[in-house]
Amino acid sequence: MNYQWHWGVFLQPSASGDDTYLGWMLSGLKMTIALSLSAWVLALALGALIGVLRTAPNKWLAGFATAYVELFRNIPLLVQLFIWYFVLPELLPESIGNAYKQSNPMLQQFLASMICLALFTSARVAEQVRAGINSLPKGQKNAGLALGFTLPQTYRFVILPMAFRLVVPPLTSEFLNIFKNSAVCSTIGLLELAAQGRQLVDYTAQPYESFIAVTVAYLLINVTVMFLMRKVEHRVAVPGYLGGK
């Protein structure tokens, strides 16, 4: 194999003329981060809600939450994404659907990707939250009730503060996953990191440099997320309990 390494390629002006190839990579990185973070915030909120509902004494609420989790866990992410992107606009009432289809294509790609990643991840977050709640001793709930808290108050003051602390480590891996999963959105044309890496190959014929650069970018995201989540873990550690001092 006589491959010509050429790292200078990143500083060359890109095919679009107004940017360098490094600029392409950075804009892809920005897109990956913006998409993953916005989807993550939604996924946390939704996942917490669904996770709590799964432990609810009301059969209908718990059943709804179980169905939600099973639905989003048993369909491949790519299929979900295509359904959000290609199917949903068709099923909307015609006026809304048409207005949506005429909006900025980048906006459409971003919205479909964000909703898809958020709901997909929320089902996983919900499972972690449920596991966290169920791993608390049952006596904690009884102690809250015995002091006269209502069930919602018991969740708010007693169960959830501890459950959320317990799920920080498993949520770290879900947080990492959402960044990796965001690469799937390149399939509907969203120009995030992996897509920019691929464009680079097409335009520069320097696949290895581009491959290594994209890999390094994902590694950096990984390290940053783990560092941040470890900070969070220390921040919420309970003295005398679970990693606390």
Partner: peptide, 24 residues
């Protein structure tokens, strides 16, 4: 390394690299 990168990216790269490699 493999756990840090997205599967889609790995697949893309394998489609680019592996065929040439096997051909040779």
């Amino acid at each position: 390394l493999f756990r840090a990168v997205p599967l889609v990216m790995v697949l893309l790269w394998f489609f680019l690299i592996v065929p040439k490699f096997i051909e040779q």
